[in-house]
Design a protein around this nucleic acid. Structure first.
Lengths: 208, 208, 208, 208
DNA sequence: GATGAATGAGGTTTCATTCAT
DNA sequence: CATGAATGAAACCTCATTCAT
């Protein structure tokens, strides 16, 4: 193995180990030593490759987000009616949130940050969250079909986002506090159908 | 002040300070020293009065929960139609979640634990969460009005709970990641109305 | 031994050990571990008693300066002719600089900072140095006896200060680079006489 | 560029970068990584070209000393009266000490070592310092004009050397502790004139 | 002849807890 | 009944040097 390969491996191993552990236990409960141990790397290698734990965390956010984009791309919006669009969006979103097929999970990290923001996280989360909210907002406006106070649309966005993101957030709590098995991809589809139906009904029959 | 009072005071001060700090910054980001400083108590007093930080945390859960019960009691269910019952329930729930008038906030601690369970937390959260879910489940069954798969009712429960609890979870994230001001009690009412309307429409017009 | 006594002892031991080692080897070449070892204290005790190595250093500056003030007080200036005043000043200054009877040596620390200022040092050095320079400046003006450019007086101040302070600075260099024995208090007197004579002649016969 | 040239360049770059940084921040406050970065060289190159940081430091001493010899040669002593000789000597000395036109500054490194000798520094400093002291000693004997105790001549040497060397030492301290601007070459001349006058008066009118 | 990766020792600091009174 | 001192483990980080091409 050439040093270049080794480097890439060590760096990549660290990234993956960190992604898994941060998702599993949170940033503050994961030590650099643990990450290195899981990556079978020297204790100093995090600082060598990433300069600091904080920088590593930012890279983990980027890395897990890219994984999600690649594995569960958002369907193109062309030529579909808006109800179908909403379903596709929620399905892809839930898959990203629930999937355990990736090293770490961006949206579970996001969910954690909703509860306890981490200084080190930089701007990626802000950007992604804003983008997703905007997409949903547009769908809602189209579905609602008539003008309304911005607050109403904002609250409806909350209604949809919270049902989705809470599933990711909830994964740890489900096991620990509700004693239920963690969700898997088949649940994603079932939940996506439910949330879509529930929200479509909620939006379309929202009393004026 | 008698020594007995002093002791009680110190203990109570510690409890309140811990409740505030755990809610504000999370269990792991709050040090025993900080708690003692805020409580103007000796560094050894947490271990003296509570034996350990973990035990203190369990007491904080009990204490914050009791506060919520006292300040924002769930309305009695008698003699109201079910829609009104749902609204009353959600409103009380949101008040408990959003209120900053208490020392610490039980439901924000619960929300944090959904994202990152804390080993030390014991069984209180499990019990309370189960109870709340059960209440909502019954309301949903009544509102839906016809028999259905248990999974459907379970998912509808998720839809309602997540919209409520996410608001509590979200308080920190709102400020840090969305740059919005924290919610206050007036928002509770507005959100309670919205969530009730949204969910009533969602339940009653849920497609079979 | 009561805890209060023990505390005072440990804190004082740390202060003295740190003063000695900082003077001996410099701030950056002295580790907290070394200081604790010399003080027979736990590795964490520096942070317990002083919060940080930097804060400890500032306390060392204050402590060593106080020692010097007590052990080698500047003679009162009353009723002496100015030549005598200069001698008394230089003698006290040199004693402070050369003495090995104290725990650490403020002026040797000052001399080190002239070569490599330490961020952590705060303002004490600035103040003391300014005061000493001002005292010398006044003596020079009196001795010179006629008006002159400020630059001349400033340069003469340098001439005197440098001859004194360099002796302190020089202590380590003397041994290591010149292979001479370190100076002691008897040398102080001899040097004080010499510097006084040299500078008096220099000032009084300075060509216009 | 041939590989041989490249090597020479890398080595030379390292030497220059190290000289600058050691002078600026001191041996212990300068890391090998910093030196390599400034020299745009590989992190391993210091050890490759110089075997160790210590060896590099010794080479820096040699290199900076050679620069000073070339740029500010000591005037030949022929045919001048002894007062002029002293002035020429001090002027050249001060230029060497104050100059910022070189990569690093040997005499500022010497001054630092007076305060905190570095184990690694070898014998160059000892030799140069001894030579300079000897030169001054001879001038003093000639100027004083009559026999005297060796101690007197030794102390006079100290008087002159300290006034010169302290200026180099003082550069950092001037800025940090006295808040004055660093000296430049024009100051060298002014100071050289002053020190010469002050010392000539001091020597010639030294009371017996 | 030169390099980027990797290392292990050691640095300062934080922290929950225990000790001794 | 309560306290301030003290502790040891563990945290993150830095660094000169060595390794493996």
């Amino acid at each position: 193995m050439t040093p270049a390969q080794k480097k890439k491996n060590t760096r990549q191993n660290l990234l993956e180990s960190a992604a898994v552990l941060f998702t599993e236990k949170g940033y503050n409960n994961t030590s650099v030593a643990e990450i290195c141990e899981l990556a079978k790397a020297n204790i100093a290698s995090v600082n060598y490759h990433f300069r600091s734990k904080e920088e590593l965390y930012r890279e983990v956010l980027t890395y897990t987000h890219e994984q999600a984009e690649v594995l569960y791309p958002m369907a193109s919006n062309d030529e579909k009616n808006v109800e179908e669009k909403l379903y596709r969006f929620i399905l892809a979103f839930l898959k990203r949130i629930i999937s355990t097929e990736m090293n770490g999970n961006f949206y579970q990290l996001v969910a954690k940050e909703m509860a306890e923001p981490i200084e080190a996280s930089g701007t990626l989360i802000n950007e992604i969250v804003a983008k997703k909210r905007e997409t949903i907002l547009q769908l809602i406006k189209e579905l609602y079909g008539k003008p309304a106070e911005p607050q109403l649309f904002s609250q409806m966005t909350h209604s949809i986002v919270s049902q989705c993101l809470f599933l990711g957030l909830h994964q740890k709590g489900r096991q620990h506090h509700l004693k239920r098995k963690p969700l898997d991809l088949s649940d994603a589809e079932s939940f996506a159908k439910h949330i879509t139906k529930f929200c479509l009904a909620g939006i379309k029959h929202y009393p004026s």
